[in-house]
């Protein structure tokens, strides 16, 4: 059967100075001012370099990037449906395996990278993503998480936090908190059920060198890898465009986001504060949470407190489902 072809051996960037000045995700795209996912895209592209093939399932990072028959990518890029990034990546990887084996492609296996939003990763795109992870294709799946279907006008997704006001979860008399559900845990979905996966990480655009190194580490692994990247969205979360990085940092400081790596069953944590700040500070900076009462914020704090007991590792969380009373 198929012999594995040579994969990447990318060097870690030790400091900001070692981050390449060269761009692969080029200036000239229609993303919003201060767009978190665009920043994520830029950093991921610096990590991969040009020997890469990127797949863009439908979402902000497709629609706002390719408008009007032009594109901002210096490496090969292909649109996929929001449903099938993982499957198209599987097909490309399988094709390269056989083309290299038969001597029809002379280089080594390119970095095959899916840049999927939260919907394209763990909602409508979950099946294809899981298929790619299960089958062990040598490709990287990146979930740039802006916590909503932002491209279509900020609708709730499984990554949208409890209490967020989205255009599908508007707060009202009957449903005062807006979004009533707690989010899916993307990394645990991948870690929990895919024996071919050896590396999963979370990253934040507020820590670019760490983000770049995690992407490179993921690419250096043979087989499928998953990196979940927190990418604040000024338009959807309703904060000032200049605060994208500040909001992302605050998420780390309050425990709303935890940076960790999972390598062959071992967890390591990065950027853990000595003491977590209350989540209220994070929530109050974003208009999407403006309607919440103290009781709602306390519910969120309880959820985060439980999660932080063992970040990344599943623990029983005090979450009430919508059908429980």
């Amino acid at each position: 059967m198929a012999k594995a072809v040579e994969t990447q051996n990318l060097e870690m960037a030790k400091s900001a100075r070692r981050v390449p000045q060269e761009e692969w995700y080029l200036p000239g795209h229609r993303t919003c001012q201060g767009c978190g996912p665009a920043l994520t895209y830029k950093l991921v592209s610096k990590a991969t370099g040009g020997d890469s093939i990127f797949l863009g399932p439908t979402g902000c990072m497709y629609v706002a990037n390719t408008s009007y028959l032009c594109s901002p990518w210096a490496y090969p890029w292909m649109h996929t449906q929001i449903t099938n990034a993982g499957a198209v990546a599987s097909g490309i990887e399988a094709a390269y395996q056989v083309l290299i084996r038969k001597g029809k492609y002379k280089g080594k296996l390119p970095n095959i990278v899916c840049m999927a939003g939260d919907g394209g990763s763990i909602d409508i795109g979950l099946q294809a993503m899981s298929g790619m992870m299960y089958r062990g294709h040598d490709a990287l799946f990146i979930m740039y998480d802006n916590e909503s279907y932002a491209n279509t006008g900020i609708q709730t997704s499984p990554a949208t936090p409890y209490g967020a006001n989205t255009t599908f979860t508007p707060p009202g008399k009957a449903i005062p908190e807006g979004k009533v559900l707690f989010p899916k845990d993307a990394c645990q979905l991948v870690i929990g059920g895919h024996p071919a996966v050896h590396y999963v990480a979370t990253a934040s655009l507020a820590y670019p060198v760490d983000l770049i190194n995690k992407v490179r580490k993921a690419l250096n692994y043979k087989g499928p890898t998953f990196v979940h990247i927190h990418s604040p969205c000024p338009k959807g979360w309703l904060f000032d465009a200049k605060k994208t990085v500040e909001v992302a940092k605050l998420a780390i400081e309050t425990g709303m986001w935890v940076n960790y790596e999972w390598e062959n069953g071992e967890y390591t944590y990065q950027h853990t504060p000595k003491e977590y700040k209350p989540v209220a500070g994070y929530m109050k900076g974003q208009q999407r949470f403006a309607h919440l009462t103290d009781a709602h914020i306390a519910k969120m704090q309880a959820f985060i407190d439980a999660k932080l007991k063992a970040p990344g590792i599943p623990v029983a969380l005090p979450v009430q489902g919508p059908r429980e009373s």
Binding site: A87, V88, A89, G91, A94, A95, G131
Partner: peptide, 24 residues
Amino acid sequence: AEFVHGEGEHAQVSIAYGASAAGA
């Protein structure tokens, strides 16, 4: 050949056109 077990027909066609895009 690479024999890929799609997780459904939607994936099957996606895998096929992805492979075709790569030149196979």
